[in-house]
């Protein structure tokens, strides 16, 4: 039974031990340690928050760069497209001009040929008339009257003309 009856001396020693331990730990030993623990917890929290901020900022910048890049690309495409259009219209213009010039050249040539042909025709007509009178005179051996002469020429020419038409 004496086992569970506290010894008075031991009780006083323990009261003193508690008092000394509590005061020293409470006033001197624990505060620097708990302060450091809180400081570290704060520091870690701050670092995490800062890291998060940095991440958000980086993401924002990346997004911005992406937008800028897309804009630049669209602009470049526009410039190329514009260049292509200008080139195409220039090409069409040059072609039209060339075609026009060729057309003009051609029609000029056709007109010249036509005029040449007409003058040649007229010349030929005169020569054929004289020649055929001379040939006819030689064959007939006689001279025919002026009226006969002209009737013959017209008849002959009509024949030649119809030949020419065929």
């Amino acid at each position: 039974m004496e086992l569970i009856i506290p010894n008075t001396t031991e009780m006083w020693v323990n009261i003193a031990a508690f008092a000394i331990l509590f005061v020293v730990l409470w006033k001197f030993a624990f505060p620097p340690i708990t302060k450091m623990l809180d400081e570290r917890a704060n520091k870690i929290r701050e670092s995490l928050e800062k890291a998060e901020d940095t991440r958000v900022e980086a993401e924002r910048l990346l997004e911005e760069y992406k937008v800028q890049m897309a804009e630049a690309r669209a602009e470049a495409a526009q410039v190329i497209e514009q260049g292509r259009k200008v080139a195409e219209s220039m090409k069409a213009e040059i072609l039209a001009k060339a075609r026009e010039e060729a057309e003009a050249e051609k029609s000029k040539a056709v007109a010249a040929i036509k005029a040449e042909k007409e003058s040649a025709m007229a010349e030929l007509k005169g020569e054929v008339a004289d020649l055929s009178v001379a040939v006819a005179g030689k064959i007939l051996g006689t001279s025919i009257t002026k009226a006969d002469h002209e009737a013959l020429i017209d008849k002959y020419l009509a024949e030649v003309g119809s030949l020419n038409e065929n």
Binding site: N14, V24, L25, F28, A29, P31, P32, I33, E39, K43
Partner: peptide, 23 residues
């Protein structure tokens, strides 16, 4: 018991002088 109490005191008073941000 007194030896143990002294050990607690020495340990914590020494430790409280040695705390650093990087423990």
């Amino acid at each position: 018991l007194i030896i143990a109490v002294v050990m607690v005191l020495v340990f914590f008073v020494a430790a409280s002088r040695k705390v650093k941000l990087v423990p």
